[in-house]
Amino acid sequence: MRSTIILLGVLALILASSYLEGLYLKSKFGYFEENLAKIIEKTDKREDDSSSLRELLKWWKGEKLVMHAFVPHNEIKDIDGMMVKAEEFIEEDCFILASAELKKLLDLIKSLPENYSFSFGNIF
């Protein structure tokens, strides 16, 4: 009886944490994607939006502390690098390079929650 209760408890913990992880990643990366898309739109129009990018970088630095528990640390490092690079390009008015870097980042952000979602492809 005791082991069955522990078993059900652990099973519930795994399922609940998986569900919450999915929700958390979806919401955070959704927000990230939305804001990044706006910055890309402005960068494509050759408008300096480094302040928004800096703000997003600040937000990301706060979020990534928790994100380390769910996402492999190398991928978080990649996001950091791409954001800093894009910021530098915008400050130097290299909008084409900044846009390319931000689009690469957007692609990574879109793929991250998908890579950890429950799907046939991810299982195999």
């Binding site: 795994i14 944490s17 998986s18 380390h68 528990a69 769910f70 996402v71 492999p72 640390h73 190398n74």
Partner: peptide, 9 residues
């Protein structure tokens, strides 16, 4: 680089 949670789960 691997979250410890992956191993625990």
């Amino acid at each position: 680089s691997t979250p410890i949670g992956f191993g625990i789960i």
